[in-house]
Amino acid sequence: MPEFLMYEWLTKPLWLWFSFLAIVIVLLAFDLGVLHRKTKEIEVRESLILSALYIGLGVLFSGFVWWAFEGERAGASAAEAATMLSGWEAAKLYLTGFVVEKSLAMDNVFVIAMIFTYFAVPRMYQHRVLFWGILGVIVLRGIMIGLGATLISQYGWVLYIFAVFLILTGIKMWMTAEQEYDVSSSPVLKFIRRRFNVTDELHGEKFWVKKPDPKTGKLAWFMTPLFLALIMVEIVDVVFAVDSVPAIFAITTDPFIVYTSNIFAILGLRALYFALAALVHRFHYLKYALALLLVFIGSKIFLADLLGMEGGKFPANWSLGITFAILFGGIAYSLWKTRHEGASMRDVSDPM
């Protein structure tokens, strides 16, 4: 292996980061270049299969995490190995982060459905918006996680700020669970409509079109509603990342586990959207479970200190088990409470 690949970046060798990025690139190329090379409407059955595939790959990657961390530990001295995560512990932390991020992404799905409805984006064009949105997410999350890891490595007390923020966010989410996201009230959207040329109608799958400017009569570039939908999807992800990035750092501070669990959860967001957009009403009470989950994750740091847990950390087994219990309870209760609503609710994902 070339020597430069052994250089460390954010506590892990470059070859490990490049291996993960190669997996991401292959998955995106397969998605866009093979599965969705032509513009088409994605059916629920196909999205369910793809969602299951992405979840399966995300879970399987925990095996790679186990192998990578065990190998790193085996090559270290006895003193260094004593302070490093074991493969099993790293895999459990990765799975906990993956489950939490995937669950928070479900809340993201509900807001994206409202965005597509507001801009009247047909299902056949929604995949294009989500694909480019995911690329933006990969970059934005990488920047935010890199900054977070740098802050935590230099100022450990930042974790307690993250924890308090998560607890307050969970309380706020519980209190505002019945409120719906209002796309039209976005200051960014209002600013864009004032400052830039925007068409009122869609132009197929184009983000920009050239047409005569009504003021000057000259040809000018205009944004389409499809591009506005992409901007709003990116803004929503930034808002959600403010919650999800501190949440994963409260689970583990290892940058590799934080980033990989985050990105693997996001990679399946497109498939998850098409699988769940038609059933958003069936998960109405999931927000309450997510609120409890954020409060629990934020409280773990303080509980570990108060109870004098080993190493000052909440046990990975407990964290994973409680996370599953909260989410399973929220999903089960939602499905039970809305069991008679399936036939009466409209499909918000298909505005046309």
Rank of each mutant, 00 (worst) to 15 (best):
G146C: 06
F64K: 07
P255H: 12
I192M: 03
W221M: 15
F207W: 10
E101G: 05
W336K: 10
L28A: 11
V34N: 00
W336R: 12
Y125N: 06
N197Y: 13
L35W: 06
R346V: 11
L327G: 00
A291G: 11
L327C: 02
L327I: 13
G136W: 01
S185Q: 12
E41G: 14
A52W: 04
M223Q: 08
M309G: 01
I248Y: 04
L5F: 12
P214S: 01
L21N: 07
R194E: 13
L60H: 02
L279Q: 13
I192A: 01
F264Y: 11
R194P: 05
G308Y: 08
L226Y: 01
A220L: 10
S153N: 15
K211R: 14
Y7S: 14
D107W: 07
L202C: 05
K215C: 01
M223F: 13
L32N: 14
G204D: 03
S186K: 03
G217F: 00
D305Q: 14
S19V: 12
T199A: 03
N317E: 15
L135M: 09
Y94G: 03
I115E: 00
K172D: 14
A163E: 05
K215L: 05
I257L: 14
E72R: 09
F296H: 08
L168T: 12
V111A: 11
H36Q: 02
E178G: 11
P212W: 13
A277F: 04
L95T: 10
A82L: 06
T39A: 14
W17T: 08
A149I: 05
I248G: 00
T260F: 05
A81Y: 07
F227Y: 13
G170A: 10
L57E: 07
F191D: 14
I297M: 02
N108Q: 05
L189Q: 09
M1F: 10
V348N: 10
S19I: 10
A29K: 10
